[in-house]
């Protein structure tokens, strides 16, 4: 879908024939998808399906072997800094600067992103209060729980109110209260119909609740894509859950049952 089909709005993210290779191994194979304006797009897949490799290309951590990416029509390879300034990113792991406190980390991110000090203060204050992070704000990240570190990353991703949020398992380690807040914020975030969210997860329930459309990745290939009703039609099963759809499209149903049977026999 081009901008014209989105009411003249630029598409937050478009991948065309994206291929990622590590030597002889192909991690992502000619992947094409787009995150439309106002959409939360879920990228689903098992471990090693190619989700993280796709995201790494998008945020500048990996060069694709083939294909192209466009973020609001800009190329992450040639307009690297511009694209990075439009993206808010929550990585899968919470490996940060252990020596910095959340406040020091947020100051660094806000400075690099050139956010107005007053705006940065107001936003940080809001998110820190909402996520109940005030107690941990002055302590080094090394001393904090994974949950507090994850909250810090989420705050950093929202700090510049990016046009495209790229979230790699963002709900990992978060307590139920914060999970609910993040879900609500994300739904609200794309409501203006301009921004987009790329949401990578293993958790089918979360994707089913939150995402407008999902893409199902398996061994680097896109096995299926669409909204929940579209995917149900595709496998011809009314009322199927996203988990059932996923297992069907990745042909994993039999493998799952075999694995369970073999474990029972132990």
């Amino acid at each position: 879908m081009g901008p014209g089909e989105n009411g003249g709005r630029a598409v937050p993210l478009r991948a065309e024939g994206l291929t990622v290779r590590y030597g002889e191994f192909t991690a992502v194979d000619r992947l094409s998808f787009e995150v439309r304006p106002g959409e939360i797009y879920g990228l689903l897949g098992s471990n090693g399906a190619g989700k993280s490799s796709t995201i790494r290309c998008l945020v500048g951590l990996q060069r694709p072997a083939e294909g192209r990416l466009r973020v609001f029509d800009d190329d992450p390879l040639t307009d690297e800094l511009l694209v990075k300034s439009r993206i808010g990113y929550v990585p899968e792991t919470t490996l940060l600067f252990d020596s910095l406190s959340p406040r020091e980390f947020l100051e660094f991110v806000a400075s690099v992103r050139r956010i107005d000090p007053e705006v940065a203060r107001r936003r940080a204050e809001g998110y820190v209060r909402a996520f109940d992070l005030g107690n941990e704000l002055e302590q080094p990240l090394a001393t904090l729980s994974n949950g507090a570190r994850q909250k810090t990353l989420v705050v950093a991703a929202f700090l510049h109110q990016p046009s495209l949020l790229v979230l790699d398992e963002p709900l990992n380690n978060l307590d139920p209260r914060t999970v609910r807040i993040v879900k609500e914020i994300l739904a609200e975030y794309v409501r203006d119909g301009r921004r987009g969210v790329l949401f990578s997860t293993h958790t089918m329930e979360v994707a089913q609740q939150l995402c407008h459309r999902v893409g199902i990745l398996d061994h680097g290939l896109l096995r299926g894509e669409g909204s929940l009703p579209e995917l149900r039609r595709r496998i011809d099963r009314d009322g199927a859950s996203l988990e059932e759809i996923y297992l069907n499209l990745t042909r994993a149903e039999d493998a799952v049952m075999d694995a369970v049977r073999s474990l029972r026999e132990l």
Binding site: R103, L106, E107, A110, S111, I115, D116, P117, A120, R121, A124, E125, V128, R129, G134, N135, L137, E138, Q139, P140, A142, T143, L144
Partner: peptide, 18 residues
């Protein structure tokens, strides 16, 4: 393990950007 300080609860306070 790093010893975490027993700081009193503090508000967010200003961020000093540069």
């Amino acid at each position: 393990l790093p010893s975490a300080p027993n700081g009193a609860r503090r508000g967010p306070g200003p961020l000093h950007t540069t």
